[in-house]
Amino acid sequence: MAKKTINVGGEIVEIPDINKNVVVMAVIVILGLIFLFSGFYKVDASEVGIIQRFGKYVETTSPGLHFKFPFGIDKVTRIAIERNFKQEFGFQTLQAGVRTQYSRADYSDISLMLTGDLSSVLVKWIIQYKVQDPVKYLFNVRNVEETLRDVTEAVMRLVVGDHSVDEVISLSRQDIEIQSTELLQVFLDEFETGLFVENIRLQNVDPPEPVQPAFNEVNQAVQEKERIVNEAETAYNKVVPQAKGQRQQMISQAEGYFENRVNRAKGDAERFISILREYSKAKDVTRKRLYLETMLTVMPNLKGTFIVDEDQKGLVPLMQLNERGGAK
């Protein structure tokens, strides 16, 4: 058999003989390897694999390495059932971070809604949800996300429609979150979406722009009210405790007066009784002695003493002379 040659750039190169069997073997081995490797697939920890054979659902596989029939016989779809998904309504986060950037686009068609008292309000909210039933999620609804958004909007308006504007903005935010979460789950179950709502969180709830200054005025009035009340209370607290202290002071002073008065009376009484006891023993002498003793104490301190005989007349001129000292 003539050797096969090949012309490479004008040079004749011989191709060495290869056993035909080896070629066939190699092809079979390669095909076998492709078959094997295309049959293996991995399911990540937070996922499940949904296996369809010729399009028909056969099983759900748990995380790990699995084997399926290759060449399009078995098809695997991985669904992250542990992951939390989030949808924003009435706003859009462009880039989350320390300073989260929000889209400036107007989403008021989503957020503007009517309240039970027929006012308008802008409600922004988010929902967080998970895929609970991957089979339902994959096969039951076309455009599950679109359905979710439509239903969520309808539910939020249903709940807000049963609350007053005051309740939506401040009084009943939590009630609205709880009610809408429950209601949304009911509807999603009805549509067999396989989705589970973790929660609905109201974000900014504002009055429409033309009304905002009036709402701010209310806030100011509330603050003004608080300020006035605080001031009145400060004035109250400033004087009342002081008055209470003064009351106690008056009482204490009176009590002191009581002690003073009674003790003095007792002392005076004791003294009198003691003197009286001795006096009764020698009345006349004591009387005289006491009189003279008193005179002795009094007389030296006096400005002057005139001793006048009972026969003496014309006392007045004398006195006037003496009065010139300016005695009072």
């Binding site: 007389m299 400005k303 003493t305």
Partner: peptide, 10 residues
Amino acid sequence: KDNTTLILST
């Protein structure tokens, strides 16, 4: 007191 003038009869 010291501003008193006493007139005493004998």
